[in-house]
Amino acid sequence: TFEVERIVRKKIVHGNTSYLVKWKNYSSKDNTWETEDDIRTKYGDLVDDFEK
């Protein structure tokens, strides 16, 4: 199971928000862009903290 360590960046393309996710126990080269809906479902607190 993958676990988010932190959110690195945010991008908005054509009105759709995605977050660059750093995965726990993986290197930064393994970071992936994930949709806001996918990340918010399980890691809403991390998204809220990133947006502060």
Rank of each mutant, 00 (worst) to 15 (best):
T32G: 02
V47P: 01
T32L: 01
E36S: 09
L20H: 02
D45E: 12
V47G: 02
I39V: 11
S18T: 11
T1L: 12
S18Q: 14
E36Q: 06
E51N: 08
G44P: 15
K52I: 09
Y26P: 09
V8I: 14
T41D: 12
K42F: 10
W33Q: 01
S27V: 07
S28K: 07
S18M: 15
W23F: 04
V21Y: 01
V21L: 02
K24W: 07
I39C: 07
H14C: 14
D38F: 15
N25T: 08
T41W: 11
E36V: 06
K22S: 05
D45M: 10
T41L: 14
W33S: 02
G15W: 02
F50C: 03
K11V: 07
I12P: 01
E5L: 07
G15T: 03
D49L: 11
S28Q: 09
E36N: 03
T35V: 10
E36H: 06
T1Q: 12
D30M: 14
D38M: 12
K11R: 13
K42Y: 12
K10S: 06
T17S: 06
V21P: 01
T35C: 09
E34F: 15
V21E: 01
E3I: 12
I39L: 15
S18L: 15
D49G: 07
S27W: 05
D45P: 11
E36C: 04
K42L: 15
Y43T: 03
K11I: 08
L20E: 06
L20R: 07
K42D: 14
V4D: 00
T32I: 02
R6I: 09
E51K: 05
L20I: 00
N31F: 14
S18R: 11
R40K: 10
K42W: 09
D49R: 10
D30F: 15
K52R: 13
T1S: 11
I12Q: 08
L46P: 01
V21Q: 00
R6W: 09
K22F: 05
S28A: 13
S28C: 15
K52M: 12
R6P: 03
I39G: 00
D48E: 11
N16P: 01
L20N: 03
K52L: 11
N16C: 13
R40T: 05
Y19V: 01
F2N: 13
S18Y: 15
W23L: 02
K42V: 08
D38H: 12
K24T: 05
K10E: 01
G44Y: 08
N16I: 15
K22Y: 04
R6N: 07
K42E: 08
S27R: 06
N31R: 05
S27M: 10
E34R: 05
N25S: 08
N25L: 06
K10Q: 03
S28R: 05
D48Y: 07
L20M: 07
N31M: 15
G44C: 05
I7T: 03
S18N: 06
W33L: 01
E34K: 06
R40M: 10
K52W: 06
S18I: 15
D45F: 14
F50D: 00
I7L: 07
E51W: 04
E5M: 05
S28F: 11
K11Q: 08
F2R: 15
I12Y: 06
W33A: 02
Y26L: 15
K52Y: 08
G15V: 02
R6C: 14
V4K: 00
E36D: 05
D49N: 12
E5P: 04
Y19K: 00
F50H: 02
T35M: 09
K22R: 05
L46Y: 05
V21D: 00
F2V: 11
S27N: 08
T41V: 14
K42T: 09
Y26V: 14
G44V: 07
T32P: 02
K22L: 05
R9N: 15
D49C: 09
K42H: 10
Y43V: 04
D49W: 10
N31Q: 09
R9Y: 09
G15C: 06
Y26R: 15
D48S: 09
D45V: 10
K10N: 07
Y19W: 02
K42G: 07
N16F: 13
V47H: 05
K10D: 01
N16W: 09
N25K: 06
T32V: 02
R40H: 03
G44L: 09
G44S: 14
V13W: 10
R40Q: 04
D30Y: 15
E34H: 10
K24Y: 07
H14K: 13
T32C: 04
I39A: 08
D45S: 12
K10T: 05
K52F: 08
W33K: 00
E36M: 05
N31H: 09
D48M: 10
S28M: 12
R9E: 12
D37Y: 12
K11T: 07
Y26T: 14
T17F: 04
S27G: 12
T1C: 15
E3R: 04
K11W: 04
N16Y: 11
L20T: 02
F50S: 02
E51D: 07
W23N: 00
K24F: 07
K52Q: 11
L46A: 07
V8T: 03
T32H: 02
K10M: 07
K29C: 12
D48L: 10
R9Q: 11
K42M: 13
Y43G: 04
V8A: 01
N16H: 13
V21I: 13
W33D: 00
E5D: 07
Y19R: 00
E3M: 08
T32S: 11
W23R: 01
W23E: 00
K52N: 09
S18E: 10
V13A: 08
S27L: 10
F2E: 11
R40W: 04
Y19G: 00
Y26Q: 14
F50K: 05
E3W: 05
T32F: 03
R9T: 09
F2G: 14
D38C: 14
N31P: 07
D49A: 14
L46W: 08
K52A: 11
Y19L: 01
G44M: 10
K11E: 06
H14F: 11
Y43C: 04
L20G: 02
Y26K: 15
D38V: 12
N25M: 06
F2D: 12
E51T: 04
W23A: 01
S28W: 14
I12M: 07
W33G: 00
K29A: 13
K11C: 14
R9F: 08
K29W: 13
F50V: 01
V13Y: 11
E51S: 02
V21S: 01
D38S: 11
Y19S: 00
R40A: 06
E5T: 01
E3H: 07
E3K: 05
D30W: 15
Y19Q: 01
D38W: 15
E51H: 06
V13D: 07
I12H: 04
I12C: 12
T35H: 10
E36Y: 09
S27Q: 10
D45T: 11
K22V: 08
L46I: 10
K24G: 03
K24R: 10
T41R: 13
T35Q: 08
V4Y: 03
G15I: 04
I12E: 07
E34P: 03
L46G: 02
T17G: 03
V4F: 05
T17I: 14
K10H: 04
F50Y: 10
T17V: 15
I39Y: 01
R9M: 13
K11D: 04
Y43L: 04
N25Y: 09
K24V: 08
R40L: 09
R6M: 14
H14Y: 09
V47R: 04
L46Q: 05
E3C: 08
R9H: 08
S28P: 09
L46D: 04
